[in-house]
Design a protein around this nucleic acid. Sequence first.
DNA 1: TTGCTTCTGAGGTACGTAGATCAGAATTTT
DNA 2: AAAATTCTGATCTACGTACCTCAGAAGCAA
Lengths: 349, 349
Amino acid sequence: MTGGATQPAIRATLEDVARAAGVSLATVDRVVNRREGVRAKTVARVEAAVAKLGYRADLAAARLARGQTFRFAFVLPTGSNSFMTNLSEQVLRTADWLAGQRGFIDILHVDVFDADVLAGALETLSPAYQGVAVIALDHPRVRAAIDELVGRGVAVVTLVSDAPSSRRLHYVGIDNPAAGRTAATLMGRFLAGREGTVAVIAGSLSLRDHTERQFGFHQILSSEYPNLPALPVIEGRDDSDRTRELTAALLARHADLRGIYCCGAGNRGIADALEASGRAREVVWITHELTQYTRRFLVRGTLDAVINQDPGHEARSAARILLAHCSGEPISADQERIRIDIFLRDNLP
Amino acid sequence: MTGGATQPAIRATLEDVARAAGVSLATVDRVVNRREGVRAKTVARVEAAVAKLGYRADLAAARLARGQTFRFAFVLPTGSNSFMTNLSEQVLRTADWLAGQRGFIDILHVDVFDADVLAGALETLSPAYQGVAVIALDHPRVRAAIDELVGRGVAVVTLVSDAPSSRRLHYVGIDNPAAGRTAATLMGRFLAGREGTVAVIAGSLSLRDHTERQFGFHQILSSEYPNLPALPVIEGRDDSDRTRELTAALLARHADLRGIYCCGAGNRGIADALEASGRAREVVWITHELTQYTRRFLVRGTLDAVINQDPGHEARSAARILLAHCSGEPISADQERIRIDIFLRDNLP
DNA sequence: TTGCTTCTGAGGTACGTAGATCAGAATTTT
DNA sequence: AAAATTCTGATCTACGTACCTCAGAAGCAA
């Protein structure tokens, strides 16, 4: 057995540093918090002591002393497909956790799909918030509202759906074109060697994430799987009834339909239509977001793969990023990167 | 816009509760920390006030006041395939984070594949540790060593590799049979309709995780893909040179080889042999763990899919679980569940 | 040297909780 | 009713840091 990185049993405190540097607590405090009024020579002495003892501020104690509290707003949609419901619940849990870190989350429900309503909500947001997480829309008015918040010194992160050209601090969500490419590769490989058409169902092509997914999907499908031509994109408006009818029509019209990629919601409609047609097993269906429904369709074999983003991870990540930014702490990039999960029947969590 | 769950701007403190209940701070403290010497009626009054104000202890302040520090040992292997190197690095980062929570991690490097050495290391572990995370071996002596630690009141979590019949607090790692099943489903579907044999390369069948993976793999392959008979399992001892030779021999001997599932390490050898044979594109190769190498093989197209467990998540999860257990806090089960990640070329993080 | 500015030390309070002591009140037992 | 016991309140220190004030030391200019 070889010993490894051993750390001191107790961490050095400001007082230890003061003693080691031969100065007083007040001086160390001035140096550590970059306050004025310390001679360069003394600064150097203190910094040497800090380095030697490996002093690191006790963040909990510091926050306690500062009496800082943070208040964040999470702007979520009023409408409620399963994914958004899950996300809301995860935000509530995150709020619970954050309360232990002296941070508070208010959830505002807004029609995030209406740019004017969303922008209006952001514009009239209480100035009490140091940070905002918002399911954004890539629209000029929303962008302007975000930029204005940022200009006022509010930390803004976009959640799930980005507004890339805005001045938001961070985007917490998946790379949607890559998610589309992932779906296409799965589709192409599951249908290896077979000929037939593939349908793409989006919620709405005015939603940036849906557009990006279908873009990535088509990119790979057309270049690598010429045996699988894609049908024109269908807009299902994330509504189960509508997607049921559209899917039924697709199945009736295209006897050679081999695959369905749904880059939005409305999965219950697709499942109904597929199962009613009796072609559920032969048509490869790939969709997004693991919910109680998609999980069931996956287990049943109607659905072949789910591309997922973890709402729990997204909620926690958004909160961590806002908190870290507001208290001047660094964030660990690779912990905050939202993965594109692939779930098959066999690796369901 | 509709308002959501709004929390009080500042959290209630012990003093607020005392005032609300009409008792003193000392009494509230007694009730909250379940100390003796408070009449039932008073307890009820205090608890009502706690509930009414939604009081929750400020954990940071509590830890500060208690002056508790925790010391954990992470027992990692001396040998160093890429996965274990990544894991070590992630443990170091976790140590860094934990230092901010008044917790300290020592890393002990041990030959974890030798049951006697591993058990010896656990048996002679300094009593200074309140918690241990160990890459376990499912072996009677290791089990006994773990149980003895637990008996002494030390929190033990198994990491990556479990000792299921021991009294460990928690297993932080993936469900290996499920990972094997996932690999089999990918293999079967990527080879849809084709005929041919599939090879399985394990590190060693005396490693529980490798055995479980190949068990899961065979289970699905034999029941659902009769067109793809599996060849007898080959042991590559997680060594690149050996797997190179074994893979080359496989390719030479089996013209109908369609797939390779590697449930251990030694991937560089497999890649070399596959690329040298010129059959890299037609043979479906699925392996475990995303490393700098497997990432490269995936991008290049030699490797078709990686089943991964996130070492960063595992390290943090182990630390969080130990910390929560030692300070009597609850853990959030679904944040601690380690996912079976599937990575294709398109969804690499 | 004197006067002036700039730096430093000493000491304080505060944050929210833990934990201790001790006097005195309330309750029960004798 | 007195004594014994149990409960409660007041008050204190401590944790590690932030932030404040003020006196006085060190350094500099005249």
